[in-house]
């Protein structure tokens, strides 16, 4: 399994949860949405996406249902659960703290 080298480690979960928070999606759509919103900067490989999704499903933060998709085939849709909502809020808070700290360091004036 390849590690997501284009993402800060640990933030993949946050990104996935946030995207799904906007509405239930299947795996392909999640990856597309991520690419679009980030302007092609954030790309997650399929080899990392699905294991991550399954892990989130195991933790109970995402619930999965099989529904008929737009192509007429059945697809597995992931939705945010209540526990997932709480986890998302936690992750957001963590991220804010982390990025704030990094920002402070980076804004130091050089002599």
């Amino acid at each position: 399994m390849s590690r997501p080298s284009d993402l800060v480690q640990g933030t993949l979960d946050l990104l996935l949860l946030k995207i799904v928070a906007l509405g239930p999606l299947h795996g392909w759509a999640i990856a597309q949405r991520l690419r679009q919103v980030s302007g092609d900067v954030l790309q997650v490989s399929e080899g990392s996406l699905y294991p991550a999704l399954h892990k989130l499903e195991l933790e109970g933060w995402l619930t999965a249902t099989w529904q008929i998709s737009d192509t007429g085939r059945r697809a597995k849709f992931y939705a945010l659960s209540r526990a997932g909502r709480r986890a998302l809020d936690r992750e957001l808070a963590d991220w804010a703290r982390l990025s704030g700290a990094i920002g402070r360091v980076v804004k130091l004036k050089e002599l």
Binding site: E46, G47, E57
Partner: peptide, 18 residues
């Protein structure tokens, strides 16, 4: 190719499900 080896991906998923 982009998937990076289906079997391995499947195995990774299975692992994730522990």
């Amino acid at each position: 190719r982009a998937f990076g080896g289906i079997e391995q991906a499947k195995e990774a998923c299975r692992d994730a499900r522990r």
